[in-house]
Design a binder for these strands. Structure first.
Length: 560
RNA sequence: UGGGGCGUCGCCAAAUUGGUAAGGCAGCGGCCUUUGGAGCCGCCAUUUGCAGGUUCGAGUCCUGCCGCCCCAACCA
């Protein structure tokens, strides 16, 4: 990953540098991020956002946030707000440049009239099914509509009728007159306008006709004087139509479309349809469930926005299909959190330890470093007393080779506290270990042995009396399949949902972890990074596991 | 199948006008360590889908194959 957030040498930036040198577009750079307000943003959108805003920033241009709200049937104002919140959170600012496609409806209708007057568009009375039947196939040309040769006067009259709401939805459309035999399917007399019944979240019932993407998008770009219209690869077949519309209508500028490959992430799905299905079926809590690849989900999961930007910069921008390993995203998240997250101790699966030679009733306040990577983070006090909790998996009665933790007769260090030696193991009637009896060495206070003796293991711990029990949500990948969307024929992507994607435990945490605000991020020493969920109450935090620490012991143990 | 896009290390991704294969993630060794974390050091493509050709020289040019993805919504 590069030091700054831009790779600076992907094909798009090369192109823009070339354009700047040649003076194309008057030496200006104007990009845009054009979300449709019909769902929440996900990590795939983050790439488009970073590319568009990033490029504008780097070349002294501007990036417009434009809602592509041309389909009132699927869109909703609540997404307009949510999308802005997510983009701001990611760290981008569109300044004055907030636009809505719906604000251009009047101009678009005028351009449609221009096309009609120029004999480039016609009103077609065919039904959707009939148009479909006449589209031809990949190898066969389509059939001309019987209405293709209507006079401009008649078309103008019919279009005015459509606009006035004189015809029912589906009864007529405005189509471009291009070429029904084109090998480029979007050029086969594409629909430009359809009649829609239903209120638009911004224009209400003012309109009865709505423009299609291919007609609307290029005009929106042109109206805003966008210079570089960057979109995903799937639109490459639409570029001839994008250019055709702009050539046949009197637009104020000539934007240029360039396509790049969208982001795919392993172990998740990126389609809005599938994400919505997970929400609707209750497979996840909501769009912002911490397991979702949505920006709101990642925010709640504890991913710092900076880490997402670094991640996007690290994977680059190119034209080939790609699926990035989840591990790469997690590496970016760890890299950020390692530097910024204060450390604290929490025991997720407590095992009681009694330090037999420690005075009953005594409590010591020991110094603990808040962040070894950041001296400015300072130190805090951690209480130590006779009864403690350690992680159950940090003790093994019969330890294998290379297990450096606690075992009968073995000495380990309690981080920032003392060396302890396990002297006895207490079991219940079923033979389960329920308590450890240990002795401590008073000379090792703070964790250093004055005689210089070494211990291999250092354990995190918590003083039982002073600890608070809290809820901790342990997340894993949502899907166990590498590419869930690529399910076998006859099978659904939901079948590869990971049943262990959420596990809730009750943990014991040190005092520093009880008064935290939602969104605060911590490293639980030796375990992973956690963040306080919005579900947290005063003094009653709920923690989400953001990502585990790298665990070379787990790797070693798995190998044997 | 017509059209289009793409094939460089397990996953991403660089490589000025052809000049002799960056980097990141993952992995593997080692050092260091009061987090089995972090950090540090080292290893990890005689080779760019395949086969030919041009050239002193090809990932970059030419020819022919092979493979993957996208397009037949009144969605975007």
């Amino acid at each position: 990953m590069s030091a700054d957030e831009s790779t600076g040498n992907d094909f798009i930036r090369h192109m823009i540098r070339r354009d700047l040198e040649s003076g194309k577009h008057g030496g200006r750079v104007v990009t845009r991020f054009p979300p449709e307000p019909n769902g929440r943003l996900h990590i795939g959108h983050a790439k488009a956002i970073c590319v568009n805003f990033g490029v504008a920033e780097e070349f002294g241009g501007e990036c417009h946030l434009r809602f592509d709200d041309t389909n009132p049937l699927t869109e909703d104002a609540i997404f307009v707000e949510a999308i802005q919140e997510d983009i701001r959170w990611l760290g981008f600012d569109w300044g004055e440049h907030l636009y809505f496609a719906s604000d251009y409806f009047e101009q678009m209708a005028d351009f449609a009239v221009q096309l009609i007057e120029r004999g480039k568009a016609f009103v077609c009375d065919l039904s959707s099914e009939q148009i479909d039947a006449r589209r031809g196939s990949l190898t066969e040309p389509g059939l001309d509509s019987p209405h293709r040769t209507r006079s401009a006067e008649e078309n103008l009259d019919l279009f005015a009728g459509m606009r006035a709401g004189e015809f029912p939805p589906g009864s007529r459309v405005l189509r471009a007159r291009i070429d029904m035999a084109s090998s480029v399917l979007p050029m086969r007399d594409p629909v430009l306008y359809r009649i829609v019944d239903g209120a638009h979240h911004r224009t209400g019932d003012r309109w009865h006709i709505y423009p299609m993407y291919d007609f609307a998008h290029c005009i929106e770009d042109a109206i805003e004087h966008v210079t570089h219209s960057l979109c995903s690869l799937e639109f490459i077949d639409h570029r001839p139509l994008y250019d055709w519309v702009l050539e046949n209508v009197d637009v104020p500028s000539r934007p240029e479309q360039t396509e790049f490959a969208r982001l795919n992430l392993s172990h998740t799905v990126m389609s809005k349809r599938m994400l919505k299905q997970l929400v609707d079926a209750g497979r996840v809590e909501d769009w912002d469930d911490p397991r979702m690849p949505t920006l709101s989900g990642m925010r709640r999961r504890g991913y710092p926005p900076e880490s997402i930007r670094r991640f996007i910069a690290g994977v680059g921008v190119a034209r080939r299909d790609n699926t990035i390993e989840l591990a790469q995203l997690e590496a970016a998240v760890r890299d950020d959190l390692n530097r910024t997250a204060p450390r604290a101790m929490a025991v997720l699966d407590p095992l009681r330890v009694v330090v037999e030679n420690y005075p009953e009733g005594q409590v010591e306040e020991l110094d603990a470093i808040n962040n070894p990577e950041d001296p400015a983070a300072g130190v805090r006090k951690v209480p130590f007393s006779r009864v403690l909790y350690i992680e159950r998996e940090d003790f093994l009665e019969d330890p294998p080779k290379k297990f450096f933790r606690l075992a009968p007769g073995r000495e380990v260090r309690l981080r920032y506290a003392y060396f302890i030696t396990c002297t006895d193991v207490v079991k219940d009637a079923d033979g389960n270990v329920v308590e450890l009896r240990c002795r401590y060495d008073p000379a090792t206070r703070g964790g250093d042995a004055p005689d210089g003796r070494k211990v291999r293991g250092t354990l995190h711990w918590v003083a039982a009396e002073q600890a608070t029990e809290v809820e901790v949500r342990l997340y894993e990948v949502l899907f166990s399949a590498h590419d869930p969307a690529d399910a076998e024929p006859g099978h659904s992507f939901v079948e590869s949902l990971n049943p262990a994607s959420l596990r809730v435990v009750r943990a014991q945490v040190e005092p520093a972890l009880t008064r935290v605000a939602p969104g605060e991020r911590f490293q639980f020493e030796r375990i992973g990074y956690f963040t306080a969920d919005p579900d947290s109450g005063p003094g009653r935090p709920v923690f989400n596991r953001t990502v585990t620490l790298r665990d070379s012991w787990a790797k070693l143990a798995k190998r044997r």
